[in-house]
Design a protein around this nucleic acid. Sequence first.
DNA 1: CAATCTTTGTGCACACGTTCACAAAGACAT
DNA 2: ATGTCTTTGTGAACGTGTGCACAAAGATTG
Lengths: 267, 267
Amino acid sequence: MATGRTHRPATRSRGIPEATVARLPLYLRALTALSERSVPTVSSEELAAAAGVNSAKLRKDFSYLGSYGTRGVGYDVEYLVYQISRELGLTQDWPVVIVGIGNLGAALANYGGFASRGFRVAALIDADPAMTGKPVAGIPVQHADALEDIVRDNGVSIGVIATPAGAAQQVCDRLVGAGVTSILNFAPTMLTVPDGVDVRKVDLSIELQILAFHEQRKAGEDAAADDDAAPAPAAVKGAAAAAAAAAAMDEADPKGTDGEAPAVMPA
Amino acid sequence: MATGRTHRPATRSRGIPEATVARLPLYLRALTALSERSVPTVSSEELAAAAGVNSAKLRKDFSYLGSYGTRGVGYDVEYLVYQISRELGLTQDWPVVIVGIGNLGAALANYGGFASRGFRVAALIDADPAMTGKPVAGIPVQHADALEDIVRDNGVSIGVIATPAGAAQQVCDRLVGAGVTSILNFAPTMLTVPDGVDVRKVDLSIELQILAFHEQRKAGEDAAADDDAAPAPAAVKGAAAAAAAAAAMDEADPKGTDGEAPAVMPA
DNA sequence: CAATCTTTGTGCACACGTTCACAAAGACAT
DNA sequence: ATGTCTTTGTGAACGTGTGCACAAAGATTG
């Protein structure tokens, strides 16, 4: 191995830490609200409070973008809105395709805020022929066969996957093959993509499970203490099987209709 | 295992790192898939690959739960499913209320995986009287007036907010007041809650903006370099104002119908 | 029963992220 | 102008998370 150098190009982004990038949209939203109220400047303290973060963190975050503040005064709201927008790439148009127009896909298509940030829904795609042509959010659904053409014709580089888990990888492969390099995945599957393609995952079930964990903590460990003297594996087989069975169904689509999204997917 | 199988050492209650907790659902999903295929045991290497994480990280994560593996063999799938389920609190029933039955709320209500993990949709709540009584996913929508009663009668401790941003804090306050101590927030607002209440946020617009950032990076910094020689604030006022206006609309609900969720909210 | 082989559990070093605390920068009043 | 007062920008300490590398544990084989 001789000095493991197999790191991935995580921080190649001109030095802006990933954690900071993740907070920029948060700041942008708070700044936008201030801008609407015609507030000319904000201090790091005020803005941090509005965004729900530590003020020192906010200042450090902004310092990665450059020195846009004025000591003794604060930050120019309009200017900062512009700088962050530009940094995030929101000053340009991002055509997006949504694949899998089930409940969730339809909900996303209807989301007005989509268009408001430079994101434009270029097409809705579903594998179910019955859906083809049916307008959702004013946009006619197109059949999955046209996926590659749509992506190429519109120069789409961001794809949203809202299909059942079983179809996600396949859809992902086709999107990537057609030129998509960023994917927002709502299906409960781990996607495999080539280098250079970004995947972000939104998973409701995971969020809920994390909440449940903390909730259980808060409720006291008494209840958990009962079955704590963990019996041998064989003894818990019953419980384990039950848990497995209960948890099982989100892995495979019961209906098996791989190409469409009959139910909301995220969890 | 005769007597002390360890797993008691440090960390029973406080020691499980947040990062580990966030990965447990991931492992659980992978394990569930294996369980379905009746695979008896997995090595950390295999499971890590299936979950998309580093195998050393996985082993360390499991070590926080206790020593459930067998050297030379791996982990007993069923047993691990049970242990993780228990640790996450999924062996008990979690009644959940969804507030704001717009596009997203309806999508969530229809999500089958909800019920499959110990999460039970106890009620759907919307402020729009026109929605009251209308069945969504087989459950009749109830009016917001009944929120407190519903929460108390069902012992709900987890609430899902899918309302417009403008209503989120108010709904949150009422949920908390009624006894909810964990909230999953889909509205694009920062919620203020008392100590002891957990909030997790799912924000589509933020995810997309993060993707856009990386996408812009990949596209080359040439384009960005143009307007990089940032002119004085005054000079960019026009652009800044345009960006602000474009970004503005996700902050306030255009329709102003505070109590309902006419459009999907998350972004 | 001993040798061998596989895989866990973890010590360690390093990278990343957060927070404090404060000097320097600049506005503003006098 | 000069001094005061506010607020930024950042060095440094600290905490958390990650990944390597390896010894110990135990299965398996002859």
